[in-house]
Nucleic acid binder design. Structure first.
Length: 465
RNA sequence: GAGGCUGUAGCUCAGUUGGUUAGAGCAUCAGAUUGUGGUUCUGAGGGUCGAGGGUUCGAAACCCUUCAGCCUCCCCA
């Protein structure tokens, strides 16, 4: 049998795991710095927790888990099962008899579920970060997997725009630390609502935003075509075009928008919340990473319909990198209302770490030492020398030196080749002569130089690098 | 959900209008080299040509079916 792994999943080899760990560690340190607390939730949730939260397309993409105990049942049960399968294949795409559980689809809904279940013991506002894999039965493509990791930071139980500003600050600091040149684009869902009002279709905000979101990809002509297809009037499209044409600094854009939006309550509220957010941000973030640009972008839409306030998206601005967004988020009023706890507002951001990895790789931004493992290999000469080698090995580890021994006393060049392949920095040779003298030969594998020294001296040498 | 491309050694791929026993590089193992790695050189092992059916004197190649993977659109991270 030929070994394989499921479509859209990946093995992570040692070097890759180390590099990914570097990203996780960087993000974690920043989340902690901003007072966020770690949270983990199960890989599987009850199916009813997830269905209906991501739209009809989303329901289709949820990985369902077959109930246990499907075998060893009587004939009546089997007949019933046959009927229930039909439900799985048609619209709700599920039946509790066949599937009651499903794999986590994102981190936000499980977080909302957690908050509702634990709100009596939580100190609100609750700030949490979460870095775990999620699963989608999507069709894999480049940079798109069926199992991928999300890193989210959310605040629930506060409507202050300070939270928005802090999350923007986390973005700029995180990408600053990773060395990725980015633009942070912000918009407000309320502003989008205002736009749909002034073009005469307040009920078609979703259609307008979906079309508008493609501005980068298909240009204004393409967007106009799609708007027409979605039932927007000629006049409405004309007004939208005027809005889109607004340019300049954030202040200039918002001022110009205020002129156009004066008739829309929602629009004016959106402008105000962006102004306040940016103002908090400039205070919080000045000096931290001031050169990361936060830009108001009126065409920014973002798919998920549960966003209600400020929305944000991060893109890499390096000219050589062609990559979609590497992070995004926004405010969602009443997310926990879905689970019966009304009136809790949340705001959060997400890091697309698989894509961030690709960007770091492409721009060669991983620090050199990240991918390396053990520094020292002790060769095995067998017999009494093996004991001597183990003794040296123990002393290395006691002194904090990452070391390993070649466990077989095989031919010399084989052990050397192993060291070479593993990119080991130092090889220790505990042979007859060394043991007799109570010393050890230390070979630097980068320079090829070798010297015979006392074990103690060798250890302090290795400790200093 | 719609469309396109590709399946040949562990990996990356050649393989001519259909024609003897299907090749190369890398990797592996052995040797040159029993205390010195990266570079060489020599040799060896390794294949149901994705699967099933069809056309043909003859199929890795052509046709059909099917499975798998990759990519684009949709949507998303």
């Amino acid at each position: 049998m030929k070994p394989s792994i499921p479509q859209g999943t990946r093995d992570f080899s040692p070097e890759v795991v180390r590099k990914r760990q570097y990203i996780f560690d960087t993000l974690r340190s920043i989340f902690e710095l901003y007072g966020f607390q770690p949270l983990e939730t199960p890989a599987m949730e009850n199916l009813t927790t997830l269905t209906g939260k991501y739209g009809e397309e989303g329901d289709r993409l949820i990985f369902k888990i077959l109930n246990n105990g499907l075998h060893a049942q009587n004939d009546d049960y089997k007949a019933k099962m046959n009927d229930e399968w039909a439900k799985v294949l048609s619209k709700p795409y599920s039946s509790p008899v066949v599937t009651e559980r499903a794999l986590r689809y994102d981190l936000t809904i499980p977080f909302a579920r957690y908050v509702v279940m634990h709100h009596h013991e939580l100190a609100l506002p609750f700030r949490r970060y979460q870095m775990q894999p999620v699963w989608r039965a999507d069709r894999p493509q480049k940079g798109r997997y069926r199992e991928f990791w999300q890193c989210d930071a959310d605040v629930v139980g506060s409507t202050s725009l300070i939270n928005e500003a802090e999350l923007l600050c986390i973005y700029s600091q995180a990408f600053g630390k990773l060395g990725v040149p980015v633009a942070i684009k912000v918009n407000s869902r309320k502003l989008l609502q205002g736009m749909s009002e002034i073009c005469g279709h307040p009920d078609l905000m979703t259609d307008i935003t979906i079309a508008l979101d493609k501005l980068d990809k298909i240009g204004w002509d393409g967007v106009a075509k799609e708007l027409t297809a979605r039932g927007i009037s000629e006049e409405g499209i004309g007004r939208l075009k005027d809005v889109i044409a607004i340019s300049g600094s954030n202040d200039e854009q918002l001022a110009a928008l205020a002129g156009i939006m004066s008739g829309s309550e929602a629009g004016m509220a959106g402008i105000a919340e962006l102004q306040h957010t940016l103002s908090y941000y400039s205070t919080l973030c000045s000096g931290v990473n001031a050169d990361v640009a936060v830009q108001v972008d009126i065409s920014l839409a973002r798919g998920l319909n549960y966003y209600t306030g400020v929305i944000v998206e991060v893109v890499c601005t390096h000219p050589d990198v062609k990559m979609g967004s590497i992070g995004g988020g926004g405010r969602y009023d009443d997310l926990t209302g879905l689970f019966g706890l009304k009136g809790l507002s949340g705001v959060g951001v997400s890091f697309g770490i698989d894509r961030i990895y690709d960007v770091l790789e492409e721009l060669n931004l991983f620090p050199q030492q990240v991918a390396q493992g053990a520094d020292v290999l002790i060769l095995n000469f067998g017999g009494d020398n093996e004991r001597y080698a183990l003794d040296v090995l123990r002393r290395c580890r006691e002194n904090g030196i990452a070391a390993e021994i070649y466990p077989e006393a095989v031919k010399f060049d084989k052990q050397m080749k192993y060291a070479n392949k593993r990119s080991i920095k130092y090889v220790l040779l505990p042979g007859d002569d060394e043991r007799a003298a109570g010393k050890i030969s230390v070979k630097n594998f980068e320079t090829g130089k070798q010297e015979l020294v006392d074990v103690t001296a060798a250890i302090s040498m290795l400790q200093s690098g």
